[in-house]
Amino acid sequence: MIALLLRDMRLAVRAGGGFGLGLAFFLLVAVLVPLGVGPESATLAKIAPGILWVGALLACLLSLDRIFALDFEDGSLDLLATAPIPLEGAVAVKALAHWAVTGLPLTLAAPVLGILLNLPQAGYGWLVISLALGTPALSVIGAFGAALTVGLKRGGLLLSLLVLPLYVPTLIFGAEVVKRGAEGMATATPLALLAGITAGAAAMLPFAAAAAIRINLR
């Protein structure tokens, strides 16, 4: 399983496209929003938590279809499905690899973009914490969506239609943590709920995703 994790991460980094693209997209969102809403720092400070979270979410969405699509095309997904390790475990590992090459860099890059958006001082720590806790959920939910659409020729658009509604709770609690943190309020409740969603999604969705892959490979 560790070999699978390393293989997926190496592929994502070397095969080009997927790895840097998400980060570049995140940067672009953070640049475009001030251009769109105007440079008043008070307005930007108010919407910064939401924009950063929505940007991270969309950047995550960009690379979702690559989780299984390439393996499906060259047949290695069939091998994974018949391999001695459980498919649920393989799905979880692939989601983890996706997180390591998208969610983790996004989390680390977010504070820099927070400066661009004039995020209040108190918010930076909470931004990193909430993204670190929340982006794994995005990857796991995304892996489920990718598993559903893996057999389709043009699944990309459908994938976003399926996955975005599933992202709603994560987004709400994640952005709420940053918003409350930036305003200096208590963040324990949304933080606990966000962690709960991540833990629940990581525990249960690999089973649903593996079931979907088995159906698609039938």
Binding site: P165, V168, P169, E176, L193, A208
Partner: peptide, 16 residues
């Protein structure tokens, strides 16, 4: 899966 997340969203927006 959608049912679980729809229910979660219902109470998440309450919070929001």
């Amino acid at each position: 899966v959608g049912s679980v997340f729809a229910l979660l969203s219902r109470y998440a927006v309450n919070f929001w």
